[in-house]
Nucleic acid binder design. Structure first.
Length: 561
RNA sequence: GCGCCCGUAGCUCAAUCGGAUAGAGCAUCGGCCUUCUAAGCCGAGGGUUACAGGUUCGAUUCCUGUCGGGCGUACCA
């Protein structure tokens, strides 16, 4: 619809140019937007205001001339000037309702597009280290990342979801020592308890499982406990497998799937880290100082140079990260989006600097990052500080168990990633029946119940007749609904390019609101058969769009509630 | 100190590329169930969009400064 209106305006602009009222080379950007107020018509354009200087006329006078030169069109009922020079468009009911045919024709694909042209894109998200179960912060990353994957696919991209984790290094060593201490019956406070050891209750369970000789199978590895509390290597390996399995269960409970699990250790085993380091040295971007090897990240916009190889010989975390990203590039992902928490912000400059220093013609701004701001958890009116080492924790799985999968996903995905998010557990629980997600799901369930009710009255829905008789839908709210439905493809496209799943959530809430309002004011199952068919057709179109939208968020669309 | 994100109703958050009278939910108040599910609808109250300037036809949005919060600024990840 907006495209059609845009081309009408374009025709008018062209006519005005040929009349000499605009410079021949004038190409004002034509914007058509949804009007917020029904009194302002269905759509509005600010074209007169943005081109008023080119035309050297007052905005309202100029707007009138643009209107006068609009070609006749069956979709346009009326165009009028309003406010400082807006042109408000009133479209015909038939034009609004035409979207319903497309919805039925495209079904689950309605709203999707092929702008991604089946190109490869990778989204890396969560990437939690296997040192504990997933907490609420990971949950935000999981929800946002998973929705981004769904959105990219809906926009025609060939999208790979990837989870990278550190299964070696200092923190894993710390984890192993913590578990080992528990295996030997020690706890925090004992002399031999490791400094900064992991204190969470799950460490004790993990130790118990190791000493039981349990076999652990996760999505990407398995290991059996050796029961030998002196075998630190076995404990480490077991602990990683155990916590990976825990995280798998968390992700499964959260309905999040990954195509690839990538182990940091494989970068060492395959020699990728060493290759990257040698390349950086060879390219002259490193120097030794104080027994450490430094990378000249300042040559790529960093505040100061960064240590690559510590005095103890180990690499700092970003070095394998550079090797990992080189690996991504070599796998053909010319587009990569890393979804991570804002606390990892500083890695961006370092990884990009390392990639540039490799001199392998990797684009400067590659890869892309989507950073979500921190989640604050409130419980009992107090902030719960999340600390894996101290063991204070709100796990994602607890949250799902208490609040529910759909509501948790909605909470975490329905807000802009750039805003900090306060998750009040008590509020989420007390309001679980009033959660916005149920408002949307309820709209879907109500639509389904219409068909059940119809069947109970021994009536049928004649879809063909419904589609043929859409012109009977003359109520304002029916047109409003149809206009809202027509916006969905645009929302999918915008949310996809902006990596902003919350736009979908907001849209669905609006659509559900329009439906609830309509439902309360107009009976769907009426005596008049053709009107009844038309109305059911409209509501089924709404249902389809609700389903498609909820699917992008990974939220279920229940038939009844 | 410097960098990034943010500051919108009592609370949690929206607001399309800079658009018209800044919107939802929760909470508060008042209506609507013998009629397709009241997890709903209709209505009311609640705002100097942190503050001060600037840019322009128009600023919650862009720019500068101030104040306040979060994160980072590790030879942790």
């Amino acid at each position: 619809m907006k495209q059609q209106l845009t081309s009408l305006i374009q025709a008018s602009i062209s006519a005005l140019i040929s009349q000499g009222k605009l410079p021949a080379d004038a190409t004002p950007k034509i914007m058509v937007e949804d009007s917020k107020d029904k009194a302002h018509g269905d759509y509005a354009s600010n074209i007169a205001m943005v081109s008023t200087k080119l035309a050297k006329q007052k905005p309202r006078d100029w707007a009138q001339q643009i209107i006068d030169n609009l070609p006749a069109s069956p979709i346009l009922k009326q165009a009028e000037i309003a406010g400082p020079g807006f042109i408000n468009f009133f479209v015909t009911e038939a034009a609004s309702l035409a979207i319903i045919d497309s919805i039925f024709a495209q079904g689950a694909k309605f709203g999707h597009n092929d702008s991604g042209k089946n190109q490869k894109v990778q989204v890396e998200f969560v990437s939690a280290n296997p040192t504990g179960p997933l907490h609420v912060g990971h949950g935000r990353g999981a929800a946002v990342g998973d929705c981004m994957v769904r959105l990219l696919k809906a926009n025609g991209w060939d999208c790979t979801a990837e989870f990278y984790y550190n299964d070696a290094g200092a923190q894993i060593n710390n984890l192993g020592l913590s578990v080992q201490a528990r295996c030997k019956g020690f706890g925090p406070g004992d002399d031999c308890w490791p400094e900064n050891g992991y204190q969470g209750h799950y460490i004790s369970e993990l130790a118990q499982s190791f000493m039981n000789g349990d076999k652990i199978v996760s999505a990407d590895q398995s290991f059996t406990g050796t029961k030998d509390s002196d075998d630190l290597q076995a404990i480490r390996h077991f602990a990683v497998a155990y916590l990976r399995r825990e995280q798998d269960l968390d992700l499964k409970a959260f309905a999040v799937d990954f195509d690839v699990y990538f182990l940091e250790s494989s970068l060492y085993e395959q020699g990728n880290v060493e290759e990257a380091v040698q390349a950086l040295i060879k390219n002259g971007y490193t120097y030794e100082d104080g027994g450490a090897l430094w990378l000249k990240t300042t040559e790529f916009g960093d505040d100061k140079d960064r240590v690559m190889r510590k005095t103890d010989g180990g690499y700092t975390y970003f070095v394998p990260d550079v090797a990992y990203h080189l690996n991504k590039w070599q796998r053909g992902f010319t587009r990569v989006i890393n979804e991570q928490g804002a606390d990892h912000h500083s890695t961006i400059t370092r990884v990009r600097a390392g990639l540039q220093a490799l001199q392998m013609d990797i684009p400067k701004g590659w890869p892309d990052y989507v950073l979500h701001q921190m989640v604050t958890v409130m419980k009992g009116g107090e902030e719960v500080k999340i600390s894996k080492r101290a063991g204070s924790y709100v796990t994602l799985r607890d949250l799902i168990d208490q609040v529910g999968l759909d509501a948790t996903r909605y909470f975490l995905a329905a807000r802009s990633v750039s805003s900090q998010l306060t998750f009040d557990i008590d509020l989420a629980l007390s309001q679980s029946n009033d959660n916005p997600v149920y408002y949307i799901q309820y709209a879907h369930a109500r639509i389904c119940s219409i068909l059940r009710k119809l069947a109970s009255q021994n009536l049928n829905w004649d879809q063909a007749q419904g589609l043929a008789k859409l012109d009977l839908l003359t109520a304002d709210q029916e047109k409003t609904l149809a206009n809202k439905l027509a916006r969905f493809p645009e929302i999918v496209a915008t949310a996809g390019t902006a990596n902003a799943p919350h736009l979908v959530a907001n849209y669905l809430h609006e659509l559900a609101g329009d439906f609830h309002s309509y439902y309360n004011n107009h009976k769907t199952i009426v005596e008049q058969a053709d009107l009844r068919d038309a109305r059911i057709t409209l509501t089924q179109a709404v249902r389809q769009v609700l389903v498609n939208g909820l699917d992008l968020l990974g939220i279920s669309a229940p038939q009844e509630m």
